[in-house]
Write a protein that binds this DNA or RNA. Structure first.
Lengths: 215, 215
DNA sequence: ACCTGAACACCGTTCAAGT
DNA sequence: ACCTGAACACCGTTCAAGT
């Protein structure tokens, strides 16, 4: 009678503390908005001492990095799920845009963390394939669109950077409550996306139903 | 002989501590990149006790708000300075874009703070006229461009939101070192701005020298 | 190999007391 | 009216000691 998962007092060794810490952190990130991220609170909630996490992460920013990478994995999944392989590039871009905005709205604190992790020092996280994966999706769609002729022929990398910056900026502004209708109108987000598409679509496909004029 | 500014030990009352705190904070924000903003360090540097700032700001976020507002004032000044009244709207937009990016690059920590102040709770800072002033500049240029015929006729508010999001996103990505040339190419920023302009310029003025193709 | 508890050097904030 | 100093409840991080 040394291990009964339900009634026993918890063992000295947690077993899989690393995973538990990460999951606890992600949970708290989703629950309490504006939570001041603190290692001690995570440890408390995971029912270990406040120094236990240091056996699994060298310091706080290491955990932050790990969470950010997981965030980028999830963003990529959300984007992939939004892509319809049968659709043409412009439709895909629109789907990507709404999926990106939706991800930010659903996980505001995680999203902020993703784009904030170690904002000070130079780190190699930005070069990680996982961090870059969502961005690569955008590139691929644009390149396909250029082959289809639906996307203006320009540097696809530049267009992808434009999309990425546009969506990131819009998501951040939305998360932070800066797109107040009183100042920015009721259709600001849709209209902003229209302008993004205006810049991407090749001459002919632009004027149609995709981007209605709203003068 | 009760007050000799140079040799006397400093008086019990600072005189204009509020202003001194703000200036010290701005200085430190510019000097040390990635500085963890702390009230106690500001007080130390201003040579007052760590509780003195509380006579002038109810709490830390109040100071943050004040600094953010000053940041928006300065951003507006930088943008205004970049505008050539003789230039047409597209040229103005390009000037605004580079001024915005330049401001972020020159004041990365202040810029981050501006768009981060009290990111948690709802606050009225986003409605402040000072916060909105730079955005209004963009609106005005776009409206003028629509009158000129150089800017596509769409909701100017939507176009302004698109510009704002695009520039904010690009600035943040640049500040955070996320636009690494290995992944994004050497001309990512210029190309991204080209795509932005592609979306804003009206049909005819687009193809010309403003936005060179770089396939 | 993994975890704890005390300890250290910090924070933000409050409050009686000083000038 | 403005400022100080001690005090409180927190952090992140380290390290000897426990299992």
């Amino acid at each position: 009678m040394t291990s009964d998962a339900s009634t026993e007092q918890k063992p000295y060794h947690h077993g899989d503390l690393r995973r538990a810490i990460i999951e606890t952190a992600l949970d708290m990130l989703q629950e309490q908005k504006g939570w001041q991220f603190t290692l001690r609170e995570i440890a408390r909630r995971a029912e270990v001492s406040h120094s236990a996490p240091y056996r699994h992460f060298p310091d706080k920013t290491a955990l932050l990095h790990e969470l950010a990478l997981i965030g980028f994995d999830r963003l990529r999944e959300a984007l992939v799920a939004a892509l319809d392989p049968a659709a043409d590039a412009p439709a895909c871009l629109q789907a990507l845009a709404y999926a990106h905005l939706g991800f930010g709205a659903a996980n505001p604190d995680l999203y902020r963390l993703m784009f904030n992790a170690d904002a000070g020092e130079p780190s190699d996280i930005h070069l990680d394939a996982r961090t870059q994966a969502p961005f690569r999706l955008v590139i691929e769609v644009l390149e396909r669109g250029q082959r289809e002729g639906t996307i203006r022929s320009r540097s696809a990398l530049g267009q992808a950077t434009a999309c990425w910056a546009h969506l990131h900026g819009l998501t951040m502004l939305a998360i932070d409550g800066r797109l107040v209708p009183e100042k920015v109108g009721d259709h600001a987000i849709e209209d902003a996306l229209t302008t993004l598409l205006d810049g991407l679509l090749s001459g002919e496909s632009a004027a149609s139903g995709r981007s209605p004029e709203r003068p």
